[in-house]
């Protein structure tokens, strides 16, 4: 390194004498000023360089471009209109949207109720279904308690809420006609767009659909109701033997078994319902927000 550097103190001198030098207030102030000025200069230079770089390279011009004419987007200031200038009095303009589930056009304002049925879900429909299966079944009912959604539900609901909902459920249970609930089949049918309600027999399904369905549900056909059992593949109401036999007969291409005449599976035959309780639990464990154990679940009814 060049010897012309005129430093009075070498680095090691400075290290040794640092505290001695800083004893003097004047020295300390000089040092502080020096550091401050350096920092100030550096920061200022940074701003100037950024500006210069933007101007010189054309970056500033590129980024700023030309301001879009925003007359089109001016907020409308009028007590009768919203910010877009739509009248507050006018009814919601309706439009159609295509249902992502069944791909049919649906009126937008009625999309949510449609989707609920289309996906074969809903707290109520799944509970109605499990209840119906339980009551339709001739098998000993001692298992029903184990299988019922309710137990898990009570847990999910913080153990306090169910009375009101149970009433509602029962009410719904009575009101709803079975064939209305069959809308739910569309999902489990793997996109059968055939409009016919209650088409979920093994007969109407392709081999693939059958296989998919049987991966997710028990599927044993009740002798009594001629319906498919939509519980999980480890449902305790049917034996492994029964399940094996059913799979053997249904998935064997040579012997298509006419499972049921026109019996549609219950509304929650969509695979989800049988596993929903477990996924629900999983979600709950995963989701961080449930903070206080004692916290109650609070959900208002929303109706307009």
């Amino acid at each position: 390194m060049n010897k012309t550097i005129s430093s009075e103190l070498s680095m090691s001198d400075l290290n040794v004498k640092f505290f001695e030098i800083m004893q003097s207030e004047a020295n300390a102030e000089d040092a502080a000023n020096f550091i401050y000025e350096n920092l100030f200069e550096d920061v200022t230079a940074g701003f100037v360089f950024e500006f210069h770089h933007g101007m010189k390279t054309g970056l500033t011009d590129l980024l700023e471009g030309e301001k879009e004419d925003d007359d089109m987007h001016k907020i409308v200031n009028s007590p009768e209109c919203d910010v877009f200038g739509f009248s507050l009095m006018k009814k919601t303009p309706d439009s159609n949207c295509s249902c992502p589930n069944c791909e049919r056009p649906v009126s937008a304002t009625r999309f949510a109720p449609h989707l609920e049925k289309c996906m074969g879900m809903g707290r109520n429909s799944s509970r109605i279904a499990s209840r119906r299966i339980a009551s339709n079944s001739r098998e000993p009912t001692s298992y029903a308690g184990l299988l019922s959604d309710d137990e898990d539900d009570a847990d999910w609901a913080g153990g306090s809420a169910p009375s009101e909902r149970r009433k509602r459920r029962l009410k719904n249970n009575n009101n709803r006609k079975p064939n209305k609930l069959h809308n739910g089949n569309r999902n489990s049918n793997g996109g059968h767009s055939a409009d016919a309600d209650g088409g979920a027999t093994y007969e109407t399904m392709t081999a693939n659909e059958k296989r998919n369905l049987l991966m997710q549900i028990c599927g044993v056909v009740s002798e009594h109701t001629k319906k498919l059992c939509t519980r999980s593949t480890r449902c305790p109401q049917h034996t492994e033997e029964q399940r094996r036999a059913l799979r053997h007969s249904v998935l064997e291409p040579s012997t298509p078994e006419g499972a049921a005449e026109e019996a549609g599976s219950p509304p929650d035959s969509s695979p989800s319902s049988s596993c929903s309780s477990s996924s629900r639990k999983r979600d709950r464990h995963r989701a961080p927000p449930k903070i206080k154990a004692k916290r109650e679940r609070l959900s208002p009814n929303i109706r307009e």
Partner: peptide
């Protein structure tokens, strides 16, 4: 509608709009 479908598909426990 697509958003609602996606959320209901992936959060099955929400299960229907009635009690949202």
């Amino acid at each position: 509608h697509r958003l609602l479908h996606l959320i209901w598909t992936h959060a099955r426990h929400l299960a229907g709009y009635e009690q949202q």
